[in-house]
Design a protein around this nucleic acid. Structure first.
Lengths: 344, 344
DNA sequence: GGTTTTTACGAAAACGTTTCAGTAAATAAA
DNA sequence: TTTATTTACTGAAACGTTTTCGTAAAAACC
């Protein structure tokens, strides 16, 4: 049972009742050597008794270290992110770091504010998956210029930036999805892409094109759509695709939300999936496996992404500020895979 | 274009080059009165030029205020939470507060660590949705005893605790689901509950019982299951239910994951839904609407929950520490509703 | 012109921790 | 015993803010 607190208890208060100096208390708390065994246990007992808890602000102010890393993500509800976050948190926690999760809501303005806030609280590092609309990355300068390492993942800078980059092999993902459909004999393949200012959609599309080219299949301009990947936009695309014949024999969408909407649309207009239309999504959203027919999609192994991020981050944090070099800005690509289901 | 920083820039540095005192700089930054217009603009210009950003630790240490609230949640990937979090974040942001999102992974140990960490960084308040295994809430004492207000939601303390509580009307939810099935003529209704040490499952089950009683339908013990609501456990329950006749004519599950698994199982063994078996879930998970047949479920209006939480929180934060009273521990119940779909 | 009030600013303390430099006591070496 | 070394601790400064108190100077009043 804890004693009732009388308002405050700092290292000074403990020092006073034990007739020691604050310095000694601090040393005990930080496991410094050169403090007597009996003193140490007396201090620990008192710490326990009054329920002392270190003030992270004071400590951080003095040491310039917070043991905290910040994470900025468009939406935590996106499955891939949720998975990545969970892994990151667990791994970091195992190494004594705390994680502050921030959500930009896919708003650039918010992303800017969040990086400023994270800088204000002087986190030790920042992990960021950027907004769909982040083409200029200079708001991260405040971090890099002040020696706070940044790691980007998922949606990453396209131009060189002094930060480590971890990304799924989007090119390969695009290639795998397209090759799979081509292998199955599809030749009129529609492609629903996200906006091409965003790294992942550029690469996925490039992979798609590569496969098409390899199979000597022309890319029909009226079968390709570039817009924010919402269900509504996917529906618009489908409406156009099925406005008049010839219909496409496959749809490859750069995310699962769009693919799911495509499937839904196909059902509505009585187009049989997969016999008349094959559909491939991207990300292996939990929904893609429970829908009927279940959907073929590209797996990104988010847990692996998380692990890679933390392992890189720890490497960087182990060095002190001054000894960081360009070698700390590697660009790492993580594997993807095709999950074949009933929609193809 | 920002000037390259020479390592540090504090309020002192700005003061020195402008031949002012740090106090004046601080006053400008905090919009205090009694500072000359020309001085103000000179300072602002320099702040802009050197890219000064306030050090939140120093500021928080001095003022004992962080403008940050902490949030602890079992899993951010759970749809209801993701929705609630997003609302909370937006609302808080509009009022100048930052949100630190923490994930307990449904581990009590982690929840305890997280509350300590949040206390260590002296957040202004904590919002918590507890672990399934949190029956003792004393680890939140460190917050309440130190005048950091706590608001619980979703999974909340069952015993009295000095904190505001916001919860969905789980009793009504349980009642609505059951009454709906009874109305449709079901009489052998199976109920898949979560463990009864958790507030929400207690209430949902009570609501279920109330409806059953009202329709003079006996509650059959072998049709009720209490366990952690995982897909695996739901499958076990379904296996038992369909091991021998008479089969149930309906399944009401206390969350959507279980209901979805029940539906999946029914399909596997060729039991027709809804004709032979009706299914109702809980939470309106996005998956429940896209599955075939789409699933009837209980909507919790998570955005509304988030709004209520923030509105209560702001009320509490507006008062200063000392003037808080028991009146700051209201228990608020938010509405739920039945969403009827094809599974009934 | 003298008195009061207001305005604009500075000096310094404070928040709670860590750490450098120093010192007294205990121990080891001579 | 004297001197050197180690051990266990203290004092005080520092981190970057905010805020109280004080005080000149300017403005307002009579």
């Amino acid at each position: 049972m804890k004693k009732k607190q009388s308002g405050k208890n700092s290292i000074h208060d403990i020092a006073r009742v034990l007739r020691l100096s604050p310095a000694t208390i601090s040393r005990v708390l930080n496991n410094h050597p050169h403090v007597h065994k009996t003193t140490r246990s007396k201090v620990m007992a008192m710490v326990e008794q009054v329920g002392y808890k270190r003030n992270a602000m004071a400590s951080g102010l003095r040491t310039n270290k917070t043991n905290t890393v910040g994470l900025i993500v468009p939406r935590i509800s996106m499955f891939v992110h949720a998975e990545v976050i969970t892994t990151i948190q667990n791994e970091l926690h195992a190494h004594g770091y705390n994680l502050i999760i921030c959500q930009s809501n896919d708003s650039l303005e918010m992303e800017i504010e969040l990086t400023n806030t994270l800088y204000a609280s002087r986190v030790d590092a920042v992990i960021a998956a950027c907004t769909l609309f982040t083409t200029d990355f200079s708001h991260f300068d405040v971090l890099t210029e002040n020696n706070i390492p940044v790691i980007f993942y998922d949606r990453v800078p396209v131009k060189p930036y002094p930060a480590c980059i971890v990304k799924g092999d989007d090119f390969r993902g695009g290639y795998l999805g397209a090759a799979h459909l081509l292998e199955l004999g599809c030749r009129r393949i529609a492609y629903i892409s996200g906006p091409l200012n965003c790294s992942i959609y550029i690469d996925r599309f490039a992979g798609f094109q590569k496969a098409m080219q390899q199979y000597n299949t022309p890319l029909l301009n009226n079968l390709v759509f570039y817009h924010e990947l919402s269900a509504a936009n996917a529906r618009k695309a489908m409406n156009k695709l099925f406005a008049k014949e010839p219909y496409p024999d496959a749809v490859f969408a750069a995310n699962d939300v769009s693919a799911l909407e495509a499937l839904h649309f196909a059902k509505e207009i009585n187009v049989q999936v997969p016999s008349e239309l094959k559909i491939v999504g991207y990300s292996n959203d939990p929904r893609s496996s429970i829908v009927t027919p279940s959907m073929t999609t590209i797996e990104q192994f988010p847990a692996n992404i998380g692990k890679v991020i933390v392992s890189e981050l720890l490497k960087i944090l182990k060095k002190d500020d001054s000894s960081r070099t360009v070698a700390d800005f590697p660009q790492i690509t993580t594997a993807v895979g095709l999950i074949r289901r009933m929609s193809t």
